[in-house]
Write a protein that binds this DNA or RNA. Structure first.
Length: 193
DNA sequence: CGGCCGATCCACT
DNA sequence: GTGGATCGGCCGA
């Protein structure tokens, strides 16, 4: 297994990164609660200032979105619907606000810890589907926006799983109807185990 | 300062 | 299939 390094995140093709992230392992080890993680099974790419679905559309620099303008390899986490923290992986170079939303994981590591964090009866392969659920199981909170993905709290690993393009299903992103034509872009990627 | 709304989830019908 | 929960961020005044 190899920890993903800076170079992986600094690539300028956010759509390619969103596809490459499928099959990678996402781990957290927060507040000494123990290591938790799973395999990324669904992602969405958000392509910066020209993407109407992105929070950074039109070069909107605010306190919240400033994290997306950091050099690739940090977490952009924000509150959605007043309840859910959504976890994104910031990519590209400094001042180019690209990001990939992690929409689903297959739980693998620290299942009992995830169980305690969730309201679910059982942590199965479906428990990590949905971006709100990803953060909930991993213990990620929007206050952790800006956290490095090269550190010891949140990180990604390559375990040699390769998802060939014929196994990847692409489609339009979820919940972005307001984005006009950009809502139709096939920037959502999934695969089945 | 007030009002609107969202990259969602879950319980309930 | 549907509607309620719930609150920070953004924008206009």
């Amino acid at each position: 297994m190899i920890r993903l390094k800076k170079a992986f995140y600094s690539n300028d093709d956010v759509v390619q990164i969103a596809k490459d992230l499928l099959g990678k392992y996402l781990f957290t080890d927060l507040n000494h609660e123990g290591k938790t993680g799973g395999i990324i099974v669904e992602t969405e790419a958000y392509a910066g200032v020209n993407d109407r679905a992105s929070h950074a559309y039109g070069d909107r620099r605010t306190n919240r979105t400033e994290v997306m303008y950091m050099e690739g390899g940090v977490a952009y986490v924000y509150l959605c619907y007043g309840i859910h923290s959504l976890f994104n992986i910031v990519t590209n170079i400094k001042d180019v606000p690209h990001a990939v939303l992690v929409r689903g994981i297959k739980p693998v590591e620290g299942l009992h810890i995830m169980q305690a964090r969730s309201n679910k009866k059982k942590i199965d392969d479906r428990a990590g589907i949905g971006p709100g659920n990803v953060s909930k199981l991993l213990g990620i909170h929007f206050s952790q926006s800006g956290e490095s993905l090269i550190g010891k709290k949140i990180w990604l690993e390559d375990h040699g799983i390769t998802i060939t393009s014929d196994r990847i299903v692409a489609g339009p992103r979820v919940g972005v109807d307001y984005a006009g034509e950009d809502a139709l872009l096939p920037y959502r990627f999934r695969f089945s185990l």
